[in-house]
């Protein structure tokens, strides 16, 4: 516990050190006036753009839209991946099909599917969700399946001994026993879906209420509000850092580190 807190503090200090130094270099370059503020606006300009978007609630709203899309898509993708992984686990025949499907679909970047997605599901939220689900489902399926195959037969026997059905064993034994694989899958899925949602929003953003952070950045870009664009990117980075450094580490700390390494 104490050790973990110290480790987290040290991460924060390292991150803060590097970020502050980068900002310092940034400001030094800006102060030489050799670079147009349209390329490298001053930190004050970025800061004030950030601040004004923050107090109007714009940034929070846009970030909220992107995050909730990733959460919804992540949930759907994870559930579908669970269905696929369970099906592959139960049936050799289905496993072959799912193997092939994963091998074909996994390397495809979500953005490459965009033209198809527009044709099939239009340009609304559904399309963004489809792309997020795509970026979540394959890494999750792969990780869940390796997780399932790593579960020791003894745990399955224990479950059978308690009279659990196949489904019960799935829920009560297989899934918790492969949690470390699931967590690794979630990490990959998060990184891929966050990227996908931001790029998708940039490619088909929606004006008005339902735009996300990618749309926010794109909009600043087309109106040449460079400082606002950097402010949006800064939020993007902050969200990434918080999720990776804190949320996932916390999740890991609450689970795998408590249960002890490999099961």
């Amino acid at each position: 516990m104490g050790l973990d807190r110290r480790r987290r503090m040290s991460i924060i200090i390292t991150r803060a050190g590097w970020i502050l130094s980068t900002l310092l270099v940034w400001q030094l370059i800006v102060s030489t006036r050799r670079v147009s503020p349209l390329i490298l606006p001053s930190l004050q300009a970025i800061g004030s753009s950030f601040w004004s978007s923050l107090i109007t609630g714009d940034l929070v709203r846009y970030a909220g839209v992107s995050i909730s899309l990733v959460l919804a898509g992540g949930l759907i993708g994870t559930l579908l991946a669970a269905v696929l992984a369970v099906a592959a686990y139960q049936s050799k025949f289905l496993a072959g099909g799912i193997d092939t499907l994963t091998a074909v679909a996994h390397p495809l970047p979500g953005i490459a599917l965009l033209p198809l997605v527009i044709l099939w599901s239009g340009t609304g939220i559904t399309s963004v969700l489809v792309i997020i689900v795509h970026s979540v489902i394959w890494p999750m399926t792969i990780n869940l399946r390796s997780g399932f195959s790593s579960v020791h037969q003894r745990y399955i026997d224990v479950g059978r001994n308690y009279g659990f059905s196949r489904l019960g064993i799935m829920l009560h034994i297989m899934i918790p026993a492969s949690w470390s694989y699931m967590l690794a899958g979630l990490r990959i899925a998060w990184a891929r879906s966050w990227r996908a949602v931001i790029s998708a929003e940039m490619i088909f953003g929606v004006m008005g209420a339902s735009g996300g952070l990618g749309w926010y950045i794109f909009q600043r870009r087309v109106f040449m509000d460079t400082a606002g664009m950097y402010a949006g990117i800064a939020v993007l980075i902050m969200i990434g850092l918080v999720i990776e450094d804190h949320l996932f580490r916390l999740l890991e700390h609450k689970t795998i580190s408590r249960w002890g390494g490999r099961q």
Binding site: R154, V158, A177, T255, G260
Partner: peptide
């Protein structure tokens, strides 16, 4: 079982 890992670790 003989093996110690029969309690569910989680």
């Amino acid at each position: 079982f003989q093996e110690f890992d029969q309690l569910l670790p989680w």
